[in-house]
Amino acid sequence: MSTILETVGVGKMYGDFVALDDVSLAIAEGELVSIVGPNGAGKTTLVNVLTGLLKPTAGLVRFRGQDIAGIGPVMLARRGMARAFQLVHIFPAMTVRQTIAVAVVSQEGKGLRFFSAVDDDRGVRDRVREVASIFGLERKLETEARYLSQGEKKLLDIASAFALQPEVILLDEPTSGVSSADKHGIMRNVVDAAKKAGVKAIILVEHDMDLVAEYSTRIVALTAGKVLADRPPAAFFSDPEIVAAIVGKMVGRLAKEA
């Protein structure tokens, strides 16, 4: 298995506050790596570093062997990494068709076409339909995103990321705000779609330990900006110390929220 995305000794300081400290991890083709940890453990910072949004203060971030530290979202999309968001990021006034088309247009390098009607572009249209049907959105093509249900919005957000045909996709709490009955549906959909679309690796940031246990090939646990554990699910959940450190804190947090 070859490494597709890695960090080497990554650190990130905000003033005196250490958000990430010497984080090294490697993600290989075929993996679904979950990043878990209590709030404030540095998950979001790590995700922002991995997606080239934040430049680390120390260490390296490499995607397919190339340095991507701080390259920004647009270049990241071009290199082949896509990101779906924790809070649903969609284009409220745009239809499902238009939303997916935005990604298809950039993936096909057609953004600088000023004079051709995007609706008449058969290549774009077929690809939009194909992506929509993978995520079960083909009946909603003409619906504006703001009128979709919460679960459909999530699916649309993920579908648009998939439409970039990325090699790596990063899912930031793809099921937050969705009923637990729908959570597995969304995850199964995403994993199937990834296989069909030729996505080589998935990074998942998730609080729901059921989902993490069921879908991950490996789990990376962060606490206070450091990697506490990096192992497959079976080894992860059989270690009481780790479970206490990560899951215990998270269950505590969830209990407080409830």
């Binding site: 920004g72 006034a93 238009q98 648009s160």
Partner: peptide
Amino acid sequence: VASRENRRKSEYLGVR
């Protein structure tokens, strides 16, 4: 239009 609706998301979808 995508950049108007949501700048960050559109950037992650490759909009310059």
